[in-house]
Write a protein that binds this DNA or RNA. Sequence first.
DNA 1: TGAATAGTGTCTATTAGACAATATACT
DNA 2: AGTATATTGTCTAATAGACACTATTCA
Lengths: 246, 246
Amino acid sequence: MGRPLPLTTVDVCAFRLEQDRLQVLMVQREHEPFLQNWALPGSVVHADTDATLEDCARRAVLAKTGIRIAYMEQVSTVGNGQRDPRGWSISVVYLALLHPSPRGPRPLAHHAHWVDLDIAPDTIQAFDHQRLLLMAIDRLRNKSRYSSLPIHLLSGEFTLAELQTAFELSTECTLERKAFRRRMLEAGILEETGEQRSTGARPAATYRARPNHLLHLFARTVGARTETILDPDALHGDPDIDPEIK
Amino acid sequence: MGRPLPLTTVDVCAFRLEQDRLQVLMVQREHEPFLQNWALPGSVVHADTDATLEDCARRAVLAKTGIRIAYMEQVSTVGNGQRDPRGWSISVVYLALLHPSPRGPRPLAHHAHWVDLDIAPDTIQAFDHQRLLLMAIDRLRNKSRYSSLPIHLLSGEFTLAELQTAFELSTECTLERKAFRRRMLEAGILEETGEQRSTGARPAATYRARPNHLLHLFARTVGARTETILDPDALHGDPDIDPEIK
DNA sequence: TGAATAGTGTCTATTAGACAATATACT
DNA sequence: AGTATATTGTCTAATAGACACTATTCA
């Protein structure tokens, strides 16, 4: 019908845990627009080779890191005429969690870097990627308060102390040790390995995630905040009805 | 670059409350593919006239009902090569809540109908719209258990009994009267009108939503279920690392 | 033995759920 | 008065938070 089609892209906020810090994968752009600015890894959808949007996201991260995504979920899709100078464009944004590299650091593609989460939003400049990253961080922070999400930042066997660190970094909350252990153990999402790990003091029991565990939803949040989200553009009058019926 | 661009569409699951039933807006298709099958209302994105994806969703519902959306949020975006026989296509799915028509029923566009929620998924046939609707229903059911979402199904002034009905229909839970009143009143999202409404017996106090209220998130869910979502395709071996680094 | 980390016992606080009791209308 | 719906009082249950206490290792 001659109408221009929007440009369709996928962008990924890929998080990992590295030495008790949360990091995000970022890439330096190699093309215009925003040449050499920092951006989220992503790709235009390859309608001929990507079977699904998720495949496109996996492909983008794999190309930069050589590491497969351990957990992935969609955060949001933004689309409008302003976000890309080339015209109307859509980006489907994913949150991805990656396991730490089991056999030491892996080489990254050129122009790709892991950036500490506290400085990442200030580093990013291209498009509206700063806002996209902030949405993904928000999702990580909030969802980690009522679900088992951060477990996917760990691989193989881990102690409860390590798991607690993953949750504390993800939620930005200081968690109470006893309450955290209770919550995790009673959720039934872990299995004991039987092994112990020496930490320089009393050795810790190690656990692994149950093999088919994807996500556990708790009935209560930690931090126990309630929150009321206000409407930025509250309407007045009688907004329900449009004067002209088509 | 010669690569085919995906077709980009928006589809809306628009819910309303009508005589103590939840209904969803459906349309009978007027074009191929799936001519005359029931589908979700939606539209191809008009890159030249829709400022944003949300505008596209609003336009689609307004065209069918003449009613503006009272609350809207994105549910998910699906995109793959199979869902539309014409080729790779993307649909951004929205959940919308509409107020009851204040001055009696409004005329709908031809081919548009409100369908009771219990039979709607069985009615829908076009594309993967049944799955999209089920995702939106799921969102409505779950989010209504920990947030104030169903309040947007009511307009103007309402009694707590009416509000409870809206929540019960949205959550599919039977709620305990005292606990429900406590929860709503202590959330601070309502204001008393001072008016009373006669119901044939003792009159009920009426309330309205605070004007700028968008969404209140409670720290606990009703129904107090916890849930563990299992991974449909649990991986085995060492999936983290891809053999070839690009 | 002392420092460090792991793990437990137990009390409190918050809020959902149950259910009976009271209040106010209409017939 | 009797019925219906609204509203409140109050006890129980579940689970997060606080915090002290015990256990096990190493230097």
